[in-house]
Amino acid sequence: MTKPSFLPPTVLVISLGGTITMTPTTAEGAAQPTLSAEELLAAVPQLADTGIVVKTQSFTTKPGASLTFDEIEELAGQLRAMDGQSTFDGFVVAQGTDTLEETSYLLSLLYAGQTPLIITGAMRAPYLAGADGPANLLASVTVAANPRARGLGVLVVFNDQIFDAAKVRKTHSTSTNAFTAPDTGPLGTVAEGRLRLLAIPAHKPLPLSTVMTRPARVGVYPASLGDDGTLLAPLLEQVDGMVIAAFGVGHVPATWVPILQEAAQRIPIVLASRTGGGTTLTHTYGFDGSEKDLLDRGLIGAGHLDPYKARHLLTVLLRSGAHRDTILATFAPAGTTAEGRG
């Protein structure tokens, strides 16, 4: 259905909770998520000057750390059902920043609609000086309503910057400039109330199955100096898949090699870098525990995907019933550059 051009754009703002919704609820002034989506929008009177019609929905009220995979899957289902209708020109999801880099990527795997989907939040609660939630909401609604955002996949808008959900990282615990994209930088900015798009995401959303009927437990295990793998071995017996957050370009202690080789015969094990930027390699180093050694022993390279995003991709694949060949084929383009090189 096509919306008549003479009608103003309409954006749906969905609240999941998080700092952007928090107010002090204890005698000590500690904050908890309490505000509804409608109350969030009441703090942004400038929206009235944009000509955008804004609707609201309070999906849940939780801190970001307590959001679940099933809740994000349910939200994605609702968004898919609304995509393509003439009701909304864009969606904005406001949530806690603790898991925003993860939920935005997870949504990009589960929602491949043309209607823009923008994820945002706040680093400072509404009652604090310099609260950033209203500005982030205003910028997010502006981007969501812009036709140039259609078909770009899930975007994160924060501090007037626009990021690809597959690249964005939270890199500071308190700063209002907490979100960056170490490998690519922002795709654009919001200035003078307008979207200034400088680039587009290298990859379109992956056409993954949204029918997830199987349970799957996927872990992330970081490499650290002096870890001999004793703790890793029993953990591998309890999961359906594992992401190894390796040193550098994909290296682990040599003592891990037999443990990982044995486990890789039973479950998919993805090799990612713990560094937060750059890519895993494939054949530069050849010592025991190097990236080439581990890939030769059955591990799957994550490429540019960080360990947390790799975990969500593997989880979606396993819950959809994907076999090893499908997992390998999916991680290949997901972790490479636009030119297709790892």
Rank of each mutant, 00 (worst) to 15 (best):
R266I: 10
T23L: 14
V54R: 12
D132E: 04
P116K: 04
V249Q: 11
E39P: 03
G90S: 01
A178R: 01
P8Y: 12
G17I: 14
D49A: 12
G133R: 03
L16W: 00
G193Q: 03
F287T: 12
G153F: 12
A139G: 05
D132R: 01
G29Y: 10
A112Y: 05
L314K: 02
E262N: 13
P268N: 00
L137N: 05
E28A: 14
L138A: 01
G226H: 09
R324T: 15
V270N: 02
A149Y: 12
L107S: 07
G289V: 02
L206T: 12
E262M: 09
V44E: 08
P63D: 15
A112Q: 07
I162A: 05
I72N: 04
P207C: 05
T115P: 10
T21N: 02
H172L: 03
A246P: 03
P207I: 05
M22R: 09
H312G: 04
T279M: 11
A30H: 13
G130R: 11
L313C: 05
T60R: 15
L281M: 11
I267V: 14
A139M: 06
L40N: 14
G277A: 09
T50R: 04
K170G: 12
L16P: 04
T60S: 15
R341L: 11
A125D: 00
Y285K: 01
S66H: 13
A135C: 00
I300L: 11
Y111M: 08
H323P: 08
R266E: 08
E339N: 06
A76R: 01
R169F: 00
L47R: 06
D293W: 11
N146M: 10
T280R: 03
L107F: 04
L260V: 00
V168P: 02
E102P: 01
L128T: 11
R341S: 09
L208A: 07
L236Y: 06
G193E: 03
P24G: 15
T336V: 01
G340C: 03
T61K: 02
N177C: 10
T50A: 07
T142F: 00
I72L: 10
V92K: 03
T34V: 13
S5T: 12
A246V: 11
K309H: 10
D227F: 02
A144W: 00
E102L: 00
T284A: 15
V252F: 12
G219P: 02
E291W: 07
G77S: 06
Q46M: 10
D325I: 09
T115Y: 08
